[in-house]
Design a protein around this nucleic acid. Structure first.
Lengths: 351, 351
DNA sequence: ACAGCGTGGGAGAGCGCTCTATCCCTGTGT
DNA sequence: ACACAGGGATAGAGCGCTCTCCCACGCTGT
């Protein structure tokens, strides 16, 4: 304990001195590489213990040129760039149950590997520029990007800056970037099959915003499946994935098709809104009307009756994003990859 | 453009050469300090532009001994350390709407300052150790900690390791650490006053887990206020902040006090559960029973009828946490501070 | 005219780590 | 006995940046 301890924590040098070996040897032991005499390994480990040594990340990053951490970027048009009611502003992105599941999946994958994501929000031109700068500064080695809106320029810019990127969901325009996605059309088909099997004859659907590829896929998948079942026309109303928009869409559809007995909503939030309107109108669910949602989010369990829904394994998908990103960082010149997950039907009370 | 561009991005040296000045001068311009001739500032800025220079964070951190980023730590007993149903496991922390609001507040404060939080989950002994190590490695300059469970050892350990910390909520045991909190008792009083003013005579309450200080405060605050209104006894059932537990508690209270006409739940999720049970039992809300929640989370707007609730300004509180932390990092030897926020009543349909 | 001073700029020493080149030392083959 | 191989350890050169001196220059005051 006669060390100088001038200021701050012990360095590699201190450990080396304590163990009576060189810096390089300590470094090797710590990084667990190359042949080091087991006896000396022990010696070093004891010295690390004794000095309370903790490696300095900045110093390591400086020479390895790796940050050993990645960014989780939530991107999309910002409040100022969309036409939103003021009360939908700000917290929106984070309040969406979707975000929690993404975060959970990413963290779940990263944590066993001793990594933690840096959380970035890119909801304005300024913010996007900032994210770009940050990434280029090497604070993180790459980014997992979730774009909430269709024509978000960030992923392309990042790719152009040669920052390793993995997207959630297929890009609206083809571009050389890795992504994970769901077989949305298959999911919609599961919903259609279930409704038809239950005997529904007048089925309607609440679609998501049609500039989002996933919404498109769910809608066409549903229509195609219904057509195969002999129902070529499906009354449709468009929402924007919020509960309110689901309520409005449901009201419109009820006016248009009073005899409806089945509803497929492109996400659970809109389905929950539909549930409320149906109850207010005195329609029993599932007695008179069957309702199927999409996502299997927390809203599906929370609503009454609990929602039958198409499960999207968001956590797994997010974990896979992280995995793909790490692969890409390890081998930056590989081809972009995509992984498509299969949806499944979760049957609860509503249908 | 006749630079070597050997590998990687341009360095300060490159910019200096391009501008015909020294490294030190470029550094001064970039960090905007000291008196540099405006003409030369321009020269340098042009050179930065031309070379596409981006500062290297690792190098900077190495010498400044600052990471210029902070951690957002979600801590608490993990799935393996509590007695939870398996289906409550894993995503739990992130799925809680609370988390989104915290993240939103922290990011909202940090972003204008060019910072981004590192997201860490500490839900097991291992994970806590990892978080500790990470923080000590200097990857972040401090941590904002949200402990979801009462006797979480992490904040104390961090403080012991001399890592700057700001907590969400008053610590269960007194300890020298900064925190932000809500005047829970005042909030509960708002709820009591409102219910009594509406004419409720048989009021019950669904409490949160009683080992959490906030739950205690809300319960005692509510009881005290009711006592002042001449209702010394308030039937109480304990839940654990989940919707399911709220349903179970409501069922118990209905059995115990069939004539009840007012319910105060310690959070919105449990209030939403209560709403479901009340409807199933044929009680009209707000006609026969008034229900007040707590938090003003997204669940309060989403439920039907929409919940009257005690608003907790979580985003503001989270932003304040970040502010306190940054202050503390700038002046590590200051005294711990605490900031208590005032709740407010948001009246909607349920009461 | 000269000391004194303030201001703008440069030189150079590190920050703590990794990694290549190098050396030493022991064991083997002839 | 000696060359040689090869594993095990070290020395030392940076990685890109900040920051403390220190110098040069022009202005003021006497």
């Amino acid at each position: 304990m006669s060390d100088k301890a001038v200021s701050g924590s012990p360095t590699l040098e201190d450990v080396a001195r304590a163990a009576g070996v060189s810096r390089a040897t300590v470094s090797r032991v710590i990084n667990g590489i190359r042949n080091v005499d087991p006896a000396i390994q022990d010696l070093v480990r004891r010295a690390v213990e004794a000095t309370g040594y903790v490696p300095n990340r900045a110093a390591r990053s400086l020479v390895t040129r790796r940050a050993d951490s990645i960014a989780l970027v939530l991107s999309g048009a910002g409040d100022d760039e969309r036409d939103l009611a003021p009360d939908e502003a700000e917290g929106d992105v984070f309040t969406d149950p979707f975000f929690g599941r993404i975060a959970s999946g990413v963290v779940g994958f990263l944590r066993p590997r001793g990594m933690h994501p840096v959380l970035m929000l890119a909801d304005s031109a300024d913010a996007r520029q900032q994210v770009l700068t940050h990434l280029r500064q090497g604070h993180t080695d790459g980014a997992v990007v979730v774009s909430t809106h269709a024509k978000d320029p960030l992923p392309e810019r990042l790719a152009a800056a040669r920052v390793p990127v993995v997207r959630f969901a297929r890009p609206p325009r083809p571009m050389p970037v890795s992504y994970v996605d769901l077989a949305h059309q298959d999911g919609a088909r599961l919903a259609a099959d279930h409704l038809v099997a239950r005997g529904c004859r007048h089925v309607v659907t609440i679609a998501g915003p049609l500039d989002v590829p996933a919404s498109q896929d769910r809608l066409t998948g549903f229509r195609d499946a219904m057509a195969r079942h002999g129902h070529p026309y499906v009354p449709t109303a468009e929402g924007n994935f919020t509960q309110d928009s689901g309520e409005r869409a449901m009201a419109r559809l009820l006016a248009q098709e009073p005899a409806l007995d089945g509803v497929f909503a492109a996400n659970d939030l809109m389905a929950a809104g539909a549930l409320h309107v149906l109850r207010e109108q005195g329609r029993d669910v599932p007695g008179q009307v069957a309702v199927v949602g999409f996502d299997d989010s927390s809203a599906a369990r929370a609503s009454r009756p609990a929602l039958t829904t198409v499960r999207q394994p968001v956590e797994d998908m997010a974990g896979e994003m992280a995995r793909l990103l790490l692969d890409r960082i390890a081998a930056p010149e590989g081809r972009p990859t995509s992984v498509i997950f299969d949806p499944s039907l979760v049957v609860r009370r509503s249908a």
